[in-house]
Amino acid sequence: MNFYTVLEYIGMFLVFVGALFLFLGALGIFRLPDVYNRLQAGTKATTLGAFGAIIGIGLMRPEWLPKAILIAVFILMTNPISSHALARASYRRGIKLWDRSVVDRYGPYLREKEEKEGKR
């Protein structure tokens, strides 16, 4: 068993783990109650899922490893930004939190800000 075979098996394992987490993310989007909880599951699972799959492919074909790492870093940078934008936009469009949520500090802040801007 030479070095590249070992790398290939590690890569396969990583791709499998990535696919597993992607599946869990999809299940979370299906089961969790409101947009914000779903985004939580979606963001984390897709980030690690794509990360695992891409790095796995990179290990299976070592000549692609630099590009694979670059793509993974880009996903780490852009995925949270997009999910933040989605969450903020849906709150401002008036999509309600789940009715069993315990606390909401954002609603009062928005109303306060609106009043301030209205006075000006």
């Binding site: 880009f74 940078m77 852009t78 930004i81 933040h84 934008a85 903020r88 401002r92």
Partner: peptide, 18 residues
């Protein structure tokens, strides 16, 4: 329009040249 949040603005600053 609603102003984009600081996260999106800073993200675009960094990602645009890339």
């Amino acid at each position: 329009k609603t102003e984009a949040s600081l996260i999106v603005r800073t993200g675009s600053r960094i990602l645009f040249p890339m």
